[in-house]
Design a protein around this nucleic acid. Structure first.
Length: 763
DNA sequence: TCCCAACGGGG
DNA sequence: GTGTACGTTGGGA
């Protein structure tokens, strides 16, 4: 049968594999006894009951003792019990070890022949059937409690249909609804189940409700339960043989690697950002009431539930192909990939590479070592203070994959650092790296980048937007993501092949290159506005043209080592830069640019937190847009003045002044009397219940006392008036001053109505 | 400047 | 899992 390894798990001495293709699926069991190594040996070890066999083996000219045991759990036990014999390679999960030792890659195509051997075959597109779901639950008391709060509705969406399972008081029941939903999932034979934050909420909640109601939540391929793992920062849910892919994880991942820039990652914002479409939004604290009220309210809730599943499905559809490609590169199942940082991805590639070379896999550092590494920071890229203010005619150039190309060009790696050799490079930091043999990370990078060039060539044979094009697009993207993570890996505190020397050499060479670039640009008569690590912003003025920039780029590229390249990134008619020096080193990246087609690129200004009022966020956005589109600080001034005036004259809806803050613990246990804490106390005094997790909505009102004293919950607002001065001075002005200070406008100019005359022109 | 608390997604 | 943990920001001291 031809297919791919979709999922696998460890069972004692065996590995259970789900092997499938478009139409068929089978479970394969392989014997693979767990093992690890000891550096030292003593006869007494032979009597340890968990040990089945001990074999001598040579690795890197060292004699090692391979200890084969009865099950994976014994490895954990023995690596502690036998600590004095120096265990190594004793923390590689059993299924990973199975794949790596057998040179098998999950998600790649194999022919599983009659002898039970996996033979490589030509790679093919993998198609998986996916469905999404979303729950709405009863939440009268704030954060819903799965022990008692029922699921009210479950939406389902796949390629062909979307629908909502629901019940009402006196019509159907929660139990029937869940059973209907589960039988739908079974019937459709889906491979991938998705949702939005379904790891953190929907799946754990569904599991709990099933156990409360006495329903078996049977979604896996082998009867094993949905496995919920609660972590300190996130909860993960997995199902054997059915891939659970949380589209929120995907979005968070893309944000982290900089492939997306969505500061607020709730479903509505993400959906709008990705597809440009609005979806219905319902404020969560209204859900229980809408359900109880029935009628039109209930209909709205059902529609919301339905749209959530559709949105989650569409997002997952965009991201899953990327994960499939990453999975093929790393060779581990998608499920594992979705939970990994890019550093961990790099590490698994290196482990494969090292094992093939017969190297010993270094142990992961101790927590003490990790802390030490973290405290000992590495100097990063060079940032030239921006010339603050508004500028016109800006050209931006950047080095293509600067860090990866440096790592290859100078063979920067832990394994090439300070070794004996005749031919080497010395970094500006003074560290020596041998030119040969090629290091682990440089080798990985070379292969990834070469592969990417080849894939991009193939991609260009197809029309953009076609399925063939997309297939290659995702593949080259996956290669790029991993290549770009190589520097991060070197300086990742938990890395097995961590190297401070390698890391600081990469950044020192990078600083050298950007300094050389600045020098050449200035020699050519360009004004350098700003540089950051690998990019340079040039002001063209009246004398320079785009053509001059192209010439400069060509000139610089002639002198760069092989593989390195400066590229023209874009032309921007206008931009605002803010210099915010933090200490001597770090400069926060804050700028806003407008492209020729009117698209805005904003970095570092975003006010996305819910503890800023709408009026502040909205005004800031308007100001940036006005300055960039019209190029006039005066126009921006008008915008702010108008808003301030409207606040003073109370022309703006109270809603715009609400500040949202979540109560994260018991109200009585707060030490600091922050505004939201005081507001919560007022609510309690008035007879309301305030539970952990509730989001408080409050407004700062006129009166005496501290800001906290004047934080009034929206429920108790009555006819109290918002404090115009507070919103002007502590919300709107701080938000907009970040920007317009740089174009020469002072706070006073905005704040006061000014002297008697001449003002009316603003209003 | 340092340190701590809050925040994130979901209802 | 061959387990136990993030990264950033704002405000107050």
């Amino acid at each position: 049968m031809k297919g791919f390894i979709f999922d696998l798990k460890s069972q004692g001495e065996k590995i259970k594999i789900v092997f499938k293709n478009k139409t068929q699926e089978k479970t394969i069991i392989k014997k693979f006894p767990p093992y690890f190594y000891l550096k030292k040996y003593d006869k007494a070890i032979e009597t340890v009951p968990e040990i089945k066999e001990i074999k001598k083996e040579k690795k890197e000219n060292q004699v090692l003792y391979k200890v084969i045991v009865d099950n994976p759990g014994s490895v954990i036990k023995l690596r502690k019990d036998l600590k004095e014999f120096e265990p190594i390679e004793a923390n590689i999960p059993h299924v990973y070890r199975f794949l790596i030792d057998n040179n098998l890659y999950a998600m790649r195509m194999y022919e599983h022949n009659e002898e039970g051997v996996f033979e490589k075959v030509v790679d093919e597109k993998i198609k998986l059937k996916m469905a999404s779901f979303d729950l709405e639950v009863y939440n009268k008391e704030g954060i819903p409690n799965a022990e008692k709060d029922a699921i009210l509705m479950i939406s389902y969406c796949d390629e062909k249909e979307s629908r909502v399972f629901h019940w009402e008081k006196g019509k159907g029941s929660e139990k029937e609804m869940i059973l209907d939903f589960l039988s739908k999932i079974k019937k459709e034979k889906i491979d991938v189940l998705t949702g939005y934050n379904s790891s953190g909420f929907d799946l754990p909640y569904l599991k709990k409700r099933c156990s409360v109601l006495g329903i078996e939540l049977d979604l896996s391929k082998d009867g094993s339960p949905v496995n919920i793992k609660k972590g300190a920062f996130s909860t993960k849910a997995d199902i054997f043989g059915l891939l659970h892919f949380d589209s929120y994880d995907g979005v968070a991942f893309l944000n982290k690697i900089g492939a997306m820039n969505i500061p607020k990652k709730d479903l509505e914002s993400v959906y709008k950002e990705m597809f440009g479409k609005e979806k219905l939004d319902v404020e969560p604290w209204k859900i229980w009431r809408m359900w109880e009220e029935g009628g039109e309210e209930l209909k709205t809730l059902i529609q919301y539930n339905k749209e959530d599943a559709i949105a989650a499905y569409e997002i997952a559809k965009e991201l899953l192909p990327l994960y499939i490609e990453i999975s093929k590169i790393i060779g581990l199942p998608i499920y594992e990939i979705t939970r990994m940082s890019t550093s961990q991805m790099v590490e698994w590639i290196l482990i494969r590479e090292a094992i093939q070379k017969g190297m010993i896999i270094p142990n992961t550092p101790s927590e003490k070592e990790v802390k030490q590494r973290m405290m000992n920071g590495i100097k990063g890229g060079f940032v030239k203070q921006p010339e603050k203010g508004l500028h016109e005619k800006i050209a931006v150039c950047d080095f293509r994959s600067l860090y990866p190309t440096l790592i290859i060009a100078y063979n920067i790696d832990k394994t090439t650092y300070n070794k004996k050799c005749d031919d080497y490079n010395v970094s500006p930091k003074g560290h020596r790296f041998c030119k040969k043999p090629i290091g682990l990370i440089p080798k990985m990078l070379k292969e990834l980048l070469e592969k990417r060039i080849e894939i991009k060539k193939q991609m260009k044979q197809f029309k953009e937007g076609t399925n063939d094009y997309k297939f290659f697009y995702y593949r080259q993207w996956a290669l790029k993501i991993i290549a770009n993570s190589s520097y991060g890996y070197m300086v990742y505190a938990r890395a097995k092949w961590y190297s401070r020397e390698a890391g600081e050499s990469v950044t020192s060479w990078a600083r050298e290159k950007i300094h050389e670039t600045i020098k050449k640009a200035e020699e050519d008569g360009f004004k350098v506005l700003y540089t950051d690590t690998d990019s340079i912003f040039l002001k063209l003025g009246d004398k320079k043209t785009k053509e001059d920039v192209f010439n400069l780029v060509r000139k610089i590229n002639k002198d760069l080592p092989e593989g390195m390249e400066l590229e023209f990134e874009g032309y921007f008619p206008r931009g605002i830069f803010v210099s915010s020096k933090k200490g001597e080193r770090a400069v926060k990246k804050k700028y806003a640019l407008i492209r020729e087609d009117g698209a805005l690129e904003i970095k570092g200004f975003e006010l996305v937190r819910r503890d800023w009022s709408n009026i502040a966020k909205e005004t800031q956005r308007k100001v940036i847009k006005t300055i960039l589109e019209q190029g006039s600080p005066e126009k921006a001034k008008e915008v702010v003045k108008k808003v301030i005036n409207e606040i003073r004259e109370r022309k703006i809806n109270l809603k715009e002044f609400i500040i949202y803050t979540q109560i994260k613990r018991k109200v009585s246990s707060y030490e600091q009397q922050a505004p939201h804490v005081k507001a919560a106390k007022k609510l309690i005094k008035a007879g309301y219940k305030v539970k952990t997790g509730n989001i408080l909505e409050y407004v700062i009102v006129q009166g005496s006392g501290s800001i906290s004293d004047r934080a009034i919950p929206i429920q108790l607002i009555g006819n109290k008036k918002y404090d115009a001065d507070y919103y002007i001075n502590n919300q709107v002005l701080p938000a907009v001053m970040k920007i317009i200070r740089e174009v020469g406008i002072t706070e006073d100019e905005l704040k006061y109505k000014g002297k008697q005359q001449g003002l009316n022109k603003w209003f």
